[in-house]
Design a protein around this nucleic acid. Structure first.
Lengths: 152, 152
DNA sequence: ATTGAAAAGACTGCCAC
DNA sequence: GTGGCAGTCTTTTCAAT
């Protein structure tokens, strides 16, 4: 079920991608539409599912969560049951902020958030390494990241 | 500059993490506060920088962007100039939706979005492999992902 | 924390193109 | 079909108590 998206819709998505808190009036002003017209387009994008939702961007540092580590995980066994067991166990770990199921050298990548490196080590040893079916694990510490609008 | 955050603030952040479109009234109802009281806490979190912003969640499939690939990149040289050259060149590639600078086996990880695998191959060969200072490149195709509130 | 009031923004018909 | 205008209604925002 594809959706018709013209250049004006793309412009709206680009603007909203940078700041989803903007109102229909301000968006309309930037793309040359009245407030109701812009609002109608936004509702259409929402109803069609292109706009799936709005999410918070948090400052983890100010929340006392200074360490973000990406874990690339290769499973020892890769049957259906192994994947389900692993995903269920991962979902129970509060420190896991994101689970990416991938095809390639690694089967999963986890974004793990912790207060500091000592806290991360505790999570790694007591939670991650005890996950069912875990084979090779690779860790990378996040230094900085930049989000970009992507090919809209 | 740390910010005092109590359990009610955390509850508000947890609720907003799932749906940032909710208003102060609905948030207040869920944490047992009046609408102005909830609004004041939200403004305090925003002013203190804990709430850094609101971002869109898009359905890439419906936008005709069906392929997401993560590229782990190891640079050949790692001087200050090499990092800056690489980051500047990466910023010019529209298909790069995210740039993560990391410490570990890989120096950078890129989230690349493309229409399909043929489109991705074009980006990989003409944009990524021609980036300055690129050494080893590892690719993983995203199958599915789940975002979780993390340790709030 | 509650009330109330002003302002901003979201939403709806109706009409023109 | 899309957009604009005018209006209603809801929510936000900020007083006052």
């Amino acid at each position: 079920m594809s959706v018709e998206i013209d250049e004006t819709d793309r412009a709206i998505l680009r603007i909203l991608s940078r700041d989803a808190a903007l109102g229909a009036a301000q968006i309309g002003a930037r793309v040359g539409l009245s407030q109701p017209a812009a609002w109608r387009r936004i509702r259409r994008l929402r109803d069609s599912g292109v706009l799936a939702g709005r999410r918070l961007e948090l400052d983890r540092e100010k929340l006392g969560l200074g360490v973000t580590v990406f874990l690339g995980i290769k499973l020892a066994a890769k049957g259906r049951v192994a994947l389900e067991d692993f995903e269920r166990a991962v979902s129970a770990i509060r420190e896991v902020a994101r689970v990416e199921h991938m095809l390639g050298l690694y089967d999963y990548r986890l974004r793990v958030v912790a207060r500091d490196l000592a806290d991360f080590e505790r999570v790694l040893r007591r939670r991650i390494m005890t996950l069912p079916g875990v084979g090779q694990v690779e860790a990378n510490v996040l230094l900085s990241e930049e989000r970009r609008p992507g090919p809209l």
